[in-house]
Design a binder for these strands. Structure first.
Lengths: 332, 332
DNA sequence: CTGTTAGCGCATTCAG
DNA sequence: CTGAATGCGCTAACAG
């Protein structure tokens, strides 16, 4: 390994001068500068970032910690990356496997010290566990779970999105709308908040809420969603629309409906949530709630930036508005 | 910030003893040990990993560098992560935006020094640019591009996969098969190799190869694929099947075919490549080539592991076999 | 079993 | 404009 001292010796200067040339921190005589650059080049020198980080006390790197790398989180990450890079920092992704243990570990101060700031996409930690996280590192929470007020937090307008999608299908004539992947449990989680929105749409339309239409699923996968809806159909549940808690779930619903030769939207209307790319292309196009990734990304980075500048600033809690995107899976 | 020295003072021992207790490196008297742990706990001490990394000369961290975080790469990353973690290391993702500049920068020795090993998913660097990468850091290349022999490299059996999918549709009666998202250009790239497989299937079946059926696309998006196929249809291209270079492209084809009321598979058969989750659920199910993510992940991690153990070992070039997964988009 | 010394490679501070 | 001294926090090697 080539160190700065090696370059210094080769160029006949001190290490400090090498540092100054390479970082353009102080003016250096042109001739000296040229010699240093030549020496660095010929030895193939590159700065040791670990040493720089230790010395500087910062890493110019931000971590985005997600439950898993694919689907929704990958898409958000691609939105966040350029915003972080625009400020001259690097973004790295780590994942927690959505297990509370790993999510806690990734929050250990040790791991945090590698980064100047952390965006944590909370999937499974509850309020109490988050309460125990004590660190002065800038952290911004992303996601739909309830969290302590002292954290900056960006979440979606889950209720409003679910209400919009459900109201839209009521307006287009449906009266028995399955809430697939939702839950009757209370407490702020993504699938509970979305069920509340589904209820709200019924109340606002003066329709009764039939809790049998809430069909929970085992895991947030298309496979589980397909199985759950098949099960509901087999059990004789009557319905004329499906509100799916996520687009991944909606995709499972598409498959289950096709298996039973139920036409979308003629027999059953369908709407999802997340506006994944795939929803534009699966015929007849899946009506969905656009979660405004860009807005999420912008707020998250803005809050983190602010927090890194001022650790004592009061916490902000952002609810990012969402939009209904109408496609062929709901009736005109 | 609490340092080891603070804990040492609090516990009335030396820093070395604190280190030994926390890392279980050397036996420590039970009483001392207890005092150290109590002190660490009460002060809220956590080791500074940057300092440890500098001192130890390693980071126990592997980077997976990908062109973008979503879709294919996110799925592979989720396969690789547990294998890395099983060896007691951490995995982080960085992205290059698929620009050659950034891909080169992520390969700068400086950046590499942060990691004990690097898995680089090559999207846009050509052989010549890779040739210029000089480093003793363990690197394993992933991806379909041609690369210098001195690198360990894991790629898919692209030709064979494309041949399988095309031959399958020929067998099921198609004679004019569009190669959507492929290219007539020579040289080892993903979409060139897959075109070669498409050709090969024709030759083996004794069928002529009509180059007008090769329909390239502007970007690897469903949107671009949809537009390209619409364009081909509008231009009067006659075909009875589509081999899509990727499943993302196949999804665009599904949309384009639906727009033109062409039934799959009755009017047009369709097969893709990548076996994305979505392909199982889009009616009638998209026949696809399974890229064997798990095999890719296992080989990549194995090669990296080997390389980290022995920097001088001869480079291995793995071609991971692929499988045809038949679904409803091709005829029985 | 525990402590001392020294150094990982860089960059800030102060001197010249 | 350039250099020397010093510290970032941890741990390997050596003493005791």
């Amino acid at each position: 390994m080539v160190r700065m001292a090696d370059v210094a010796r080769e160029a006949g200067v001190s290490a400090m001068t090498v540092s100054n040339v390479l970082n353009q921190r102080r003016p250096v005589a042109a001739a000296t500068r040229a010699r240093v650059l030549a020496a660095a080049e010929s030895l193939g020198y590159e700065v040791n970032l670990t040493a720089r980080h230790l010395s500087a006390g910062r890493t110019d790197t931000v971590a985005l910690i997600v439950p898993s790398f694919h689907d929704y989180f990958g898409e958000v990450a691609d939105e966040i990356a350029p915003l972080i890079e625009a400020e001259g920092r690097h973004l790295v992704l780590e994942r927690t496997s959505a297990s509370p243990e790993q999510e806690m570990e990734s929050l250990s101060i040790a791991r945090l010290q590698l980064y100047d700031g952390v965006l944590l996409s909370v999937a499974s930690l509850d309020r109490q566990q988050l309460e125990r996280v004590r660190t002065s590192k800038p952290i911004v929470l992303l996601g739909e779970r309830d969290a302590p007020d002292r954290f900056d937090h960006v979440r979606l307008a889950n209720e409003e999105g679910a209400r919009l999608a459900t109201a839209h299908m009521i307006e287009r004539g449906s009266r028995r709308i399955v809430a697939l992947g939702c839950t009757l449990e209370r407490g702020h989680t993504m699938n509970s908040d979305r069920r509340v929105g589904w209820e709200l749409a019924h109340e606002q339309a003066g329709l009764p809420v039939d809790e049998r239409l809430v069909v929970p699923i085992a895991t947030y996968s298309s496979q589980a969603a397909r199985a759950a809806l098949e099960g509901a159909i087999a059990a004789g549940l009557e319905f004329d629309a499906v509100f799916a808690a996520t687009d991944v779930i909606a995709l499972g619903a598409v498959a289950a409906l096709a298996d039973h030769r139920l036409r979308v939207p003629e027999d059953v209307q369908l709407a999802g949530f997340d506006n994944l790319d795939v929803s534009r292309f699966v015929p007849p196009g899946i009506t969905s709630i656009d979660p405004n990734h860009q807005g999420v990304a912008q707020h998250a980075v803005r809050l983190l930036h602010r927090r890194m500048a001022d650790g004592a600033a009061p916490a902000e809690h952002i609810v990012v508005p969402v939009d209904l995107v109408v496609r062929g899976s709901t009736r005109p």
